[in-house]
Simulated assay, not measured.
Amino acid sequence: MFSSHGPSVRELAVQGLSSVERGYDLLAPKFDHTPFRTPDRMLDAVEETLAQYEGAFGAGLDVCCGTGAGIGMLSRLCRGRITGVDLSAGMLAQAEHRYGADADRVDFVRADARALPSALAETYDLAVSFGAFGHFLPSERPALFSGIHTALRPGGVFAFPIGAPLPLGSRVWWATTGFDAAMRVRNALWRPPFVMYYRTFPLGPVREDLRAAGFTVETVPLTHFGHRPDGTPHWRLILARRRG
């Protein structure tokens, strides 16, 4: 799963016993050599689907941008300024190093996604996020979605991929269920907590929380990843639009 340039088992253990912020600060220099980075295949599928359904945008926001995997995609979809927001200073340092030559167009802001700075209000036409939602408890989704809603201009779109429910009893279902159970035990016994769960972001409740935050919600199949035996897609793209 990890390349020779990735973190060692010891480094992963130290990260896992840290807070989310500190853990990603430690992991940042090697993060792009782990399977945790959003695959280019997913980024390409989202970019192609957004271009097909929405066309071009003005300014773009990457929420929980990490080392900046989604910034290149936004720079191609958006005509205006691109901003990446993340809590981890270490991850932002890696992103800034990667996109330093584009500083006239790309900037990065260190902030908690649950409390985005007021200076970002009604600034963006497109917001995206990849692979970060497991770091937010269900009770934190309203604050997360409300902040993104505020950052968008009226009519702006918040887009992100979401996977279909895993087949009950499948190998992946057992793996993710076991991981989540282990994390709950870890967080009950160890401080600071490290919030990372795989099965706390189901489509139905997420859709309701988006609507409560002021979005209209549409789902588009990401056909690049095929369909399940019942004909439903393995992955969908959520298009949450700020009303008005």
Rank of each mutant, 00 (worst) to 15 (best):
G90H: 07
D102T: 12
N187A: 12
G23Y: 05
L27G: 12
D44Q: 15
G134M: 00
Q15T: 11
T232L: 08
D125K: 00
A95R: 02
G214L: 04
G169N: 07
L152Y: 06
L152R: 04
R105V: 13
G244M: 06
M42Q: 14
L77V: 03
M42P: 11
R41P: 00
R105L: 10
D62E: 14
S75D: 15
R184W: 08
L210R: 02
G100A: 09
W174M: 03
D112M: 04
R228N: 13
R243Q: 13
A93V: 05
R241D: 02
I238R: 03
A69P: 09
R184V: 10
E140C: 11
S118K: 05
V106G: 04
V20R: 03
V195E: 05
D180G: 15
L17H: 14
L137Q: 13
R171H: 08
G226A: 09
E122C: 11
S18L: 07
A213D: 10
G68A: 09
A115R: 13
R22K: 12
F225H: 06
R228H: 14
L210A: 03
R191H: 12
R241Q: 09
T34K: 02
P117D: 10
A45H: 02
M1W: 01
A56Y: 07
L12N: 05
W173M: 06
T200A: 11
V14E: 10
S18F: 04
S88L: 06
T200Q: 15
P7V: 09
T176N: 10
T38N: 02
F179A: 14
W173K: 02
V63Q: 00
L126T: 04
R236T: 10
G72Y: 01
L210Q: 04
R81C: 11
F179H: 15
L222C: 02
E140N: 15
